[in-house]
């Protein structure tokens, strides 16, 4: 973890309430896909944890959904403004376990961290499939971006207005060797219930610090309470004991 001040180079809408922010600064602390940064915003006491979509050559990409006053404030920030973040937080995904045909499962604003993961897996020569789910056609983002990396991409929408009708669990390929999932809890629990293969889940919780000291974001695992911010946010399927 390091405390770094970045400079905003882009802050643009991808859909009605999802935006992409690009920032210049030192990204060296982000060593794995699935890590996050904790963003300090003027006028708000607590930082906002945001997953890393991409981090390369001193450019940090964050995709965030405007869900409250803090992210609303973030959406009004302009190119050239500075943003202080705690960077390199969390464990991230373990790409060594992927097998030959890893499957990425993303729901809504859970899609972004899978982008850096796809890049890392493709760089290892893996055959990567991504199934990304949204509520409706107007909320779809990053289909083309995943495709241009070289993934096979399937989009699902809950209302059937775009791609396959249903949820990501309605479009699971049969030959995947391992999965990496990020999205809302009902989606993660459906993935947990409907997959025979092993995989990893990225979890979310309201956080105080983001670096493991306030123990505000604890979750239950087979080996006891774990801090989502520090021991996670990524947990292996076998570590979780969800009642489905």
């Amino acid at each position: 973890m390091r405390d770094i001040t970045f400079e905003i180079s882009e802050n643009v809408p991808l859909t009605a309430n999802v935006r992409r922010m690009r920032l210049y600064g030192d990204t060296a602390d982000i060593t794995r896909a699935g890590q996050f940064v904790n963003v300090r915003l003027d006028g708000f006491y607590l930082r906002r944890p945001i997953s890393v979509c991409d981090a390369e050559n001193g450019v940090l990409t964050l995709i965030y959904k405007c869900v409250g006053a803090g992210t609303e404030r973030m959406s009004r920030m302009r190119t050239g403004e500075r943003l202080n973040v705690l960077t390199g937080l969390g464990n991230g995904y373990d790409i060594s376990l992927s097998g030959r045909r890893p499957l990425l499962l993303g729901g809504g604003v859970g899609v972004p961290p899978l982008y850096l993961l796809a890049k890392k897996l493709l760089a290892e020569g893996k055959d990567v499939s991504a199934v990304i789910g949204f509520n409706t056609a107007a909320e779809v983002f990053y289909e083309k971006e995943f495709a241009s990396l070289g993934c096979s991409v399937t989009v699902t929408t809950a209302d059937g207005s775009y791609g396959t009708k249903g949820f990501v669990t309605d479009a699971l390929p049969e030959d995947a060797t391992y999965f990496y999932a990020c999205g809302p809890m009902p989606m993660l629990k459906a993935v947990y219930a409907k997959t025979d293969i092993s995989g990893e889940f990225s979890l979310e919780e309201r956080m105080g610090c983001g670096f493991g000291v306030c123990v505000g974001c604890t979750c239950k695992t087979v080996t006891g309470g774990k801090r989502i911010c520090k021991d996670g946010p990524v947990f292996k399927k076998e570590e979780l004991e969800w009642q489905i």
Partner: peptide, 15 residues
């Protein structure tokens, strides 16, 4: 183990 989550909420000038 402590209490169930969410365990953290933001407030004006505090938490």
């Amino acid at each position: 183990f402590g209490n169930p989550t969410p365990r953290i909420a933001e407030c004006p000038a505090g938490m």
